[in-house]
């Protein structure tokens, strides 16, 4: 019903593209013409119909291809998915949250029926049908977190809460903006954020941690993060840097519109009921510059954001080298006209 799933790749021949519909619903992250860090969290409530906020977990035209890409990453490097032994219960919490949300929000694709702890799950787009016993790991082909995140777009980390801190102790991370679960696993909140420039001085992480420690059941929140990626590669991992890092050096004025992508992460945070852990889904959306400039407001604004961003941030986000190339390209779409507030197209 309705949506077709694209047959596309995020590696090799890079056939990934956004349909006109996907461009129109792209989560453009800049609400104004400039950007600086902030905690910028808001309630993750069901939002604008058709937008990526409509449902708890957005399923879009890239779903099937993204899951295929994830399976390839895991086959090459199983350490992209790890769960310390005490995080299994949190994995079940996550499985329940995703299955219930998807079955409720996309009944044409997903179905969950329960008879006590005997559950039956159907995922039609991926042609999966599974009977299992809730809270009994032996009845699933993978642990609960791995099972459900092989079927859900976006990266996921699970944070245990103790000693007034959060500890990243499980995750499925294959679509990341240059960070490694294998490196970070077991770290506390400030430890895993240590590489971020400027934000520590602004005490952003102190405030964010305090906020998250009191995150409440039934009150998920969301924020955006963003970076730039050359070629539509989901797996920009430190492990594979030699494979993708050099691509930054081969972009030209002729290829930038097609090869340069704005990479947006819709990050949400949910308290989990049984484990009291927090799940952090990081959903990655890619858009080519040539796709983005079809929306005049976004083109004007992205030009201004890239032009005015502090060098530390452009360096951290990995695009300082190509910033002049980007500005040459984007400036052609910025006539200086004012832009309206908020993220939606005019």
């Amino acid at each position: 019903m309705g949506l077709e799933f694209n047959d596309e790749t995020f590696r090799g021949d890079y056939t990934f593209r956004n349909s006109a519909k996907a461009i129109a619903r792209f989560p453009f992250p800049f609400a104004e013409d400039s950007y600086m860090y902030s905690v910028n969290m808001e309630p993750h409530l069901p939002g604008r119909p058709g937008s990526v906020f409509e449902h708890m977990f957005d399923v879009d035209e890239h779903y099937v291809a993204e899951m295929r890409d994830r399976a390839q990453v895991l086959a090459e490097d199983p350490l992209r998915c790890q769960s310390l032994p005490h995080m299994t219960l949190a994995g079940w919490d996550l499985l329940e949250l995703i299955m219930e949300s998807k079955a409720r929000d996309y009944p044409q694709w997903f179905s969950l029926t329960k008879d006590g702890n005997r559950w039956h799950w159907i995922n039609r787009p991926l042609q999966i049908e599974q009977s299992f016993t809730f809270l009994d790991e032996t009845t699933l082909p993978y642990g609960p977190m791995e099972y459900i995140t092989r079927q859900t777009q976006g990266d996921f980390t699970l944070q245990d809460q103790r000693d007034d801190n959060l500890w990243i102790e499980a995750g499925m991370v294959t679509t990341q903006a240059d960070w490694s679960l294998d490196f970070d696993i077991g770290m506390s909140f400030h430890e895993w954020h240590a590489p971020v420039p400027l934000a520590h001085e602004m005490r952003v992480f102190d405030r964010a941690l305090k906020f998250l420690l009191n995150l409440q059941l039934g009150a998920p929140v969301r924020r955006f993060n963003w970076t730039m990626t050359v070629d539509p590669l989901l797996d920009t991992s430190p492990e594979n840097y030699p494979k993708w890092g050099p691509s930054k050096t081969t972009m030209t004025p002729e290829t930038i519109g097609h090869r340069q992508h704005l990479r947006v992460e819709l990050q949400t945070l949910h308290r989990l009921p049984r484990s009291n852990a927090i799940v952090f889904p990081i959903r990655c959306y890619l858009i080519k510059f040539e796709e983005l400039v079809t929306v005049p407001k976004w083109a004007r604004r992205l030009h201004r954001v890239v032009r005015d961003i502090p060098d530390e941030l452009a360096t951290y986000k990995g695009f300082i080298r190509n910033k002049p190339l980007m500005l040459d390209y984007l400036s052609k779409y910025d006539d200086g006209a004012p832009t309206s507030p908020g993220i939606w197209p005019e």
């Binding site: 005490h86 949190a90 245990d160 103790r162 009191n214 059941l217 009291n276």
Partner: peptide
């Protein structure tokens, strides 16, 4: 209110 846990078991 919704439940809040300030006295959770340590899962480890």
């Amino acid at each position: 209110s919704s439940p809040v846990n300030l006295f959770p078991l340590d899962a480890r």
